[in-house]
């Protein structure tokens, strides 16, 4: 179902947060692409730069953060340093966001219909009955009853709110949707429903998606390709089956090992060691302080990406 056309490309993306005590390198030389109709899962622990990648893709990195290098291409058009007015046209029509906090992502004082409509009318000339029909159809598509149209956010449950967000995101049939931990604030049952809604919508509309999360188990069921991030660097990218079958990078191995299992009790290994100070990364591999297989070579120079299997790349010294 995924064609070869790349709808979103991040080329050598660098994002720094400029603090009084030096620049924090939040995203370091990230290369990633999303093909049409594909879901790419971006995983990594808290603070590894997943959300910064998402926000910089939307050109919404908040100060003191700034994109210091690289390009972001949507359907071939580079959007870095595009003027604000052009960006505004592009947002939502080409690039939509499903935000992180399900509980808080809708304006509490306006009705659902208004919040869904304003995103549409900002980009399309549509009003009256046509607009109403469109919003109702969108609600229906995500499995919400018609009465939601006239309700306020506080009258909806968390799962319903998140489905409203999904309906909003697909309203203009964008090229790429960025889902920033779309299910993280929900309980498992609702998570399942929301994930299913996302998949339904994606299959019907054929949109491409970057899905951010740290739940490897959930991502495994939803995404086509997985990109693993550590401390601002991509360490492994590959098709989901290949990654789960042969995780090459020690960090990916640890992440997959950390998926809880009912069959055996496993000690949690990922927490060993600390992430380095993001202001002055060490020479060599970014994972050297926590890697169980660390060698002298790891401290010399950063590893290069190497293709291990079709479409499956890893950056680790032991394969270089």
């Amino acid at each position: 179902m995924a064609s070869d056309q790349k709808v979103l490309e991040l080329n050598d993306l660098n994002v720094h947060y400029f603090t009084p005590r030096g620049a924090v390198i939040a995203v370091n030389h990230v290369n990633l692409y999303v093909k049409k109709g594909e879901i790419v899962g971006l995983v990594g622990e808290s603070g590894c730069g997943k959300t910064t990648v998402a926000m910089s893709t939307l050109q919404m990195v908040s100060a003191p953060g700034r994109i210091v290098g690289g390009e972001i291409k949507i359907e071939g058009q580079n959007i870095v340093n595009l003027p604000e007015k052009e960006l505004r046209k592009l947002r939502w029509s080409k690039l939509a966001l499903i935000p992180q906090g399900a509980m808080n992502s809708l304006n509490p004082v306006t009705k659902i219909k208004e919040q869904m409509a304003d995103g549409i009318t900002a980009h399309e000339k549509i009003s009256g009955a046509a607009l109403r029909d469109k919003v109702l159809k969108l609600l229906n598509d995500v499995g919400l009853p018609e009465r939601v149209y006239n309700m306020f956010p506080h009258e909806l449950s968390g799962g319903m709110k998140q489905r409203v967000c999904i309906a909003m995101a697909v309203a203009l049939n964008p090229a790429v949707i960025i889902a920033d931990e779309p299910t993280s604030a929900l309980d498992v049952i609702v998570q399942r429903v929301v994930a299913q809604t996302l998949l339904d919508v994606k299959n019907r509309l054929g949109v491409s998606m970057i899905m951010i999360g740290h739940d490897m188990g959930l991502l495994a069921q939803m995404v086509d390709r997985v990109a693993v991030m550590y401390a601002g660097n991509l360490v492994e990218v590959g098709p989901v089956g290949s990654i789960f079958e042969h995780p090459y990078h020690p960090y990916t191995q640890l992440l997959i090992d950390a998926i809880p299992s009912t069959k055996q009790k496993k000690p949690l290994k990922v927490t060993e060691g600390l992430t380095h100070d993001l202001r002055n990364p060490p020479p060599g591999c970014c994972f050297q302080f926590r890697c169980p297989f660390v060698r002298d070579a790891c401290r010399q120079k950063p590893p290069e990406f190497k293709q291990m299997e079709p479409d499956h790349f890893v950056a680790c010294v032991q394969y270089n």
């Binding site: 505004r88 947002r91 029509s93 935000p99 304003d118 995103g119 900002a122």
Partner: peptide, 17 residues
Amino acid sequence: NEDYFLLAQAKGLSPAR
């Protein structure tokens, strides 16, 4: 810093709105 404020910007609404 609220999520809905962020989302409003992501929707490409006019700054005044």
